[in-house]
């Protein structure tokens, strides 16, 4: 039995080590490395990875730890006590929730905008050209109204005076893209940046009505951060020239 226990314990060790890491978040752990934890909306994955790398390059001894997820999930985690230093939201509403919970360390600032675009499979088999075409007899996939991209799609529909009848309401942008990319869906409504990130897997079709619904991304340091100054520096970095150029390369608009 003893012999069998040892490997089991060995397996547990990395787990406990991970636990230790989490607790030392945003603090100098004695090795001279300062860790900054940034919670960012999932749609910021590619850009924030780049920005974090650039930020680390300019700040010796700083390590940026990124955690991506749905904005509302992230807010829930922060209110439940997760030790984040910076929060970058994909929607004003989620940031407002954090402000209401008195958990922001400074006034949130808008750092990017995003608009919807029609995503179609390569070659556009259903011949979609406009927003109106999405009301026809085709497999349209949207985000569920409860998630930001779905709420935006609903607003666009209202503004344009059309009614969509989607075959599926997905929980995440990536699920919409996956179904379009695989050809199961003829079209989906996602953000410009999502289309850009998907590369050759999908084609994007702009439509004029998208200008009516512009999604704004706010960012703020989280209250009671152990690294409040560094958190503010990161926020400024995102708002600065380097951050903005990374964001715009990915298709984001300037607020």
């Amino acid at each position: 039995m003893k012999r069998a226990l040892l490997p089991a314990l060995a397996l547990l060790l990395p787990l406990t080590a991970c636990g230790g890491d989490d607790e030392s978040t945003a603090s100098d752990d004695g090795s001279g490395i300062t860790t900054l934890t940034v919670y960012a909306a999932a749609s910021l994955t590619a850009t924030f990875e780049q920005i974090a790398e650039d930020f680390e390059a300019e700040h010796d001894g700083v390590e940026v730890e990124l955690s991506f997820g749905g904005s509302s999930d992230l807010v829930t985690q922060i209110t439940e006590g997760a030790e984040a230093d910076v929060f970058a939201s994909a929607a004003t509403k989620n940031m407002d929730d954090l402000v209401a919970a008195d958990l922001t360390g400074a006034e949130p600032q808008d750092f990017a905008t995003n608009v919807l675009e029609i995503a179609v499979p390569p070659g556009n088999p259903a011949g979609v050209k406009s927003l109106q075409d999405l009301t026809g007899d085709l497999n349209l996939v949207l985000c569920a109204p409860e998630v930001p991209c779905g709420a935006a799609a609903q607003k666009v529909a209202e503004a344009a005076g059309v009614t969509f009848s989607p075959v599926s309401e997905e929980q995440a942008v990536t699920d919409v893209l996956a179904k379009v990319a695989s050809g199961e869906a003829d079209a989906g409504l996602v953000y410009v940046t999502d289309v850009a990130a998907a590369g050759d897997d999908v084609e994007g079709i702009e439509f004029p009505e998208s200008a009516d619904v512009v999604n704004t991304y706010p960012i703020a340091p989280v209250a009671d951060s152990d690294e409040a100054d560094l958190a503010q520096e990161f926020v400024d970095f995102v708002l600065g020239a380097t951050g903005q150029s990374v964001l715009q390369d990915a298709g984001f608009g300037q607020p």
Binding site: V141, A144, P166, V167, S168, E169, E170, Q171, D175, A178, K179
Partner: peptide, 13 residues
Amino acid sequence: TITFAGSLEGTTR
């Protein structure tokens, strides 16, 4: 289900 069938009230949700 969510990968293959999607999510729509009354049909696949």
